[in-house]
Design a protein around this nucleic acid. Structure first.
Lengths: 208, 208
DNA sequence: CACTCTTACTATACCGGGTTTACTTTTATT
DNA sequence: AATAAAAGTAAACCCGGTATAGTAAGAGTG
């Protein structure tokens, strides 16, 4: 989105309103926390009607996560533009760690701190993230030269998107490592109760 | 929960109220659909205050899915009571198919039909289902003789619970098959772009 | 330039889920 | 018989989100 030049007064005013709302919201959220601020207050501070707020953002939560599109684009780019000879999983792992690092920089950091103690915000963030599933499925389908997404790709995408959610709750790097190892190599290697598999000659204890 | 004998008048009245609310809600939902019925109407029909409704059920959606506990118990039982020599994945697959079959019996069937066209209800059902993750982690930890859940178990539980959600959107049986195969055997077998893996001597083409 | 069409926005009332407060009734307890 | 705890009532209230009807300004057209 070009910022101002050649955009028509109308559109310029629109993005100005949007920015005003966003800034008012951010200021109030940082000051008092997400739940303690009402949409009416935000509208007042931005000098617009509550209706206008919802014309620009579908839900209150969207005022915090206004960069969903860019996040999705980065994800797709990470897969499509991965180094030659790199697997998708490796590319995703690197990308996830980079995203986590990004969230730790200012001013994202302070905004993320808000998220922690508002359940509705946590939930919204997760659902937003998982909405990238289709985009991931599409880029994988394309990368693998298929016309239609296979069931394997669908499952892979769904599982792979769960990994960073899981990793946030623990030490990210080793957790991510484990998640991708499981996803890439399969559960049968870890399951201590499994019978001998179709393929013979494998040890029963997990390696390492 | 014992139904009436030796429960004290108090508790008996309480469960009676709960039942009345539930029956009123179910009747109205089936008649007009989830979204078209307000909590006030349900309360009126059950001859209680709206407050009382929320004293028994945390959210409106919980009036439709009032059997969360039993669902979780069945899941745990399916893992714990699996036939000897059966892997967890096999047990889960069988259990999932049985649950789907269960949902197709009356009167669950009609209630489930409601769910389809109310987004909030679909979302609630999924989140409810995924809340069983901890229970699944716990039973796996116990079954594998561990004191603390391993990271692999956590990931397995999370992935495994995604499978039936995914399978509902397609033809359940083959989708489920694919999901568990991926989970058990790993993505590396399916990824057409992968390099040779770290561990040497493994063939690059999928066995079978 | 006058004309119309579209669109961002206003004002205001409204809806419905969910909570709060203060109070009453009923059951269990000592 | 006295008392404490639980369950429920009644009514106002909060807040996110929507609906309606209308205004005003920007943009394109003859």
């Amino acid at each position: 989105m070009v910022n101002d030049a050649s955009m028509g007064r109308r559109e310029r005013k629109k993005t100005a309103t949007r920015t005003a709302i966003l800034e008012a919201a951010t200021a109030l959220f940082l000051e008092r926390g997400f739940d303690a601020v009402t949409v009416r207050e935000i509208a007042d501070k931005a000098d617009v009607t509550p209706k206008t707020v919802f014309a620009h953002f579908p839900r209150k939560e969207a005022l915090v996560f206004s960069t969903e599109g860019e996040q999705r684009d980065r994800l797709v780019a990470a897969v499509r533009g991965r180094a030659p000879g790199t697997t998708v999983s490796e590319a995703l792992k690197v990308h996830y760690l980079a995203e986590i690092a990004l969230l730790r920089t200012e001013p994202m950091n302070r905004i993320m701190a808000l998220t922690e103690d508002s359940p509705s915000l946590v939930e919204y963030a997760e659902r937003m993230w998982l909405r990238h599933e289709n985009a991931l499925v599409d880029v994988l389908t394309e990368e693998f030269g298929l016309d239609e997404p296979s069931m394997e790709i669908r499952f892979y995408a769904r599982f792979a998107l769960q990994i960073p959610l899981m990793a946030r709750q623990a030490d990210p790097e080793p957790a991510m490592e484990t998640g991708f190892r499981l996803l890439d190599e399969g559960w049968a290697r870890y399951d201590p109760t499994r019978r001998r598999r179709a393929r013979a000659g494998r040890s029963t204890r997990p390696p390492e």
